[in-house]
């Protein structure tokens, strides 16, 4: 599988949008893709999560129960999902909001202070996109150019003025070194 990713955080952190941009890269590359959101009470202020699968083969179960790639944007999501990551998998942690350090030795943990970076660079609300840039860097599920192209498809026309900030956030995350 090219990408088997679970993204989790609070409603409003852009969990679903982040997944959607990742999913669009598969549209551009003509691969199989599924995007499945949690829905219902989660969307109304609780925790939200989103499963994204990209593959060269048709996708069976679209629910990611044991992610190869886990992105956590808040502490409850870290606690809930850290043990589900497949051995050999990767966990991406917004270290501005999550104090925990991953004690598992069979997975790679990446700590990115996305929320702080977004504040410092006047990219408020784009911590999720900074994170997506870092996920791309470490997993290589597509190319940076294709991810930028996917972003262009996902930013609606009436929000076109936000595109540059989103592309800047992707680059910031992509270039971030711990």
């Amino acid at each position: 599988m090219v990408l088997n990713m679970l993204i989790a955080g609070f409603g409003g952190q852009g969990v679903l949008f982040m997944g959607k941009v990742a999913a669009y890269t598969a549209m551009i590359e003509e691969k199989y893709v599924s995007w499945l959101p949690s829905y219902g009470p989660e969307m109304r202020g609780g925790t939200a999560n989103c499963s994204v699968c990209i593959d060269d083969e048709p996708i069976g179960c679209p629910i990611v129960l044991e992610p190869e790639t886990l992105v956590v944007l808040n502490a409850p999501s870290y606690d809930k999902f850290v043990d589900a990551v497949q051995p050999g998998g990767k966990i991406f942690i917004d270290s501005s909001l999550i104090e925990a350090k991953c004690i598992r030795t069979d997975i790679d943990a990446y700590y990115i202070p996305c929320t702080q970076m977004a504040k410092d660079d006047d990219l408020s609300g784009l911590a999720n996109i900074i994170m997506l840039g870092k996920v791309l860097k470490e997993t290589g599920f597509t190319t940076f150019d294709i991810l930028c192209e996917a972003m262009k498809k996902c930013v609606p026309a009436k929000k076109a003025h936000l595109l540059d900030a989103n592309l800047k956030a992707l680059k910031l995350g992509y270039d971030y070194a711990e």
Partner: peptide, 10 residues
């Protein structure tokens, strides 16, 4: 069902 209704696919 809810899964098919909510999921996105090409």
């Amino acid at each position: 069902d809810g899964m098919l209704g909510q999921m996105m696919e090409p």
